[in-house]
Amino acid sequence: MSSYLTSVLIFTGINLIAVLGMFLLMGLTGLLSFGQVGFMAIGAYAAALGYTKFGLPFGIGLLIGIVISLLVGLVIGTVTLKLKNDYFALATYGFSEVIKNVLIYFSSFTGGSMGVFGIPASVTLPLVAVIFLVGLVITRNFKVTKLGRNSLAIRNDELAAQVMGINVFKHKLSVFLLSAVFGSVAGSLLAFATYYIEPNLFDWNRSISLIVIVFFGGINSLTGAVTAGLALTLLPEVLHFGAEWRMVIYTFIIIVTMIFRPTGLFGRWEISGRQMMDWFRNRGQRSAARGRG
C-alpha cells in the first residue's frame, strides 16, 4: 500500500473515532455540541507534551489525555448540561474556544500558536483500525442496550424520559464523558500521526465537519455516520479540493440534507449480520425458483 494511501486511511480512521463520539452525543442523545474539538485538543496536547516534555510513551500520554478529558468533562458537563438546545451548543463552543485560548496563552509550556514540534509518527494503520473497531463495538452496544434507549427517550422528550424514571442529567453526563473519551483518543492519535500540532487544528471548522457527517449519515444510524464519515473524509482527499471549497461543499450538503431529508441519508437503517444472511438466503431461493421456472 502506498504511503499516501496509508496516511489518508489513518486520518480517515482518526476522524471516524471522533465521529463515533459525536454520534453518541448528538445522534443518539440529541446534544448538539461544539466541544468535541476541545477534548481532541486536550488529548492531542497531553500525548504530545507528555512525549516532548517528559519523554512518556504514546500509550501513557493517551491515558493521561483520557484522564484529563474526564476531569474537565465532569466540570464542563456539570455546568453546561443544565442548559437547553442552542445554549448548550454555544456554551460548549465557548469551552472549545477557551481551551484554544489557554493553549495559545500559556505559550512557555504549550508552545503557544507556534504549536508543538518533534512528535514521532508512531501511529500505524493497524493501531488506528483496532482502536476504531473497539470504539465501533462500544458505540454499537451502547445503541442497542438500555443505555441507547434511554438516550433516545431523552432526545425525543426529556420530560417524559424523566417521568419514566430515567435520571436525565446523570445519563447526559455519562454520554458527555464517554464522547469526551472518544474525542481525546482521536486527538492523541492525531498528534502522533501528524508530527506537529497547533491550537488552530482544533477549531470551529473541525466541529462543523463532525456535525455535518453525523447529520448527513442520519442521526439514528450508526452505519450512516460511519459511511458518511468515510465518504466525506475520503472524497475531498481523492478529488483534491482546496480547504475553502471543501467547506462550501460540506455546508451545502448539510443545508440540502436538513431541508429535504432531515433524518439523514440512511434514516434508521443499520447494517446487520442477520439482514445480510437473509438477503443471501433469499437470493439463493430466488435463483433456485428461477431455475425451476
Partner: peptide, 17 residues
C-alpha cells in the same frame, strides 16, 4: 428547533466560505 439552528449555522458558514 435545533434543526433551524443547525441550518442557520450551515447557511452562515456556506456564504462565508
Amino acid at each position: 428547533l435545533i434543526y433551524l439552528f443547525v441550518v442557520s449555522i450551515a447557511i452562515s458558514m456556506f456564504l462565508q466560505y
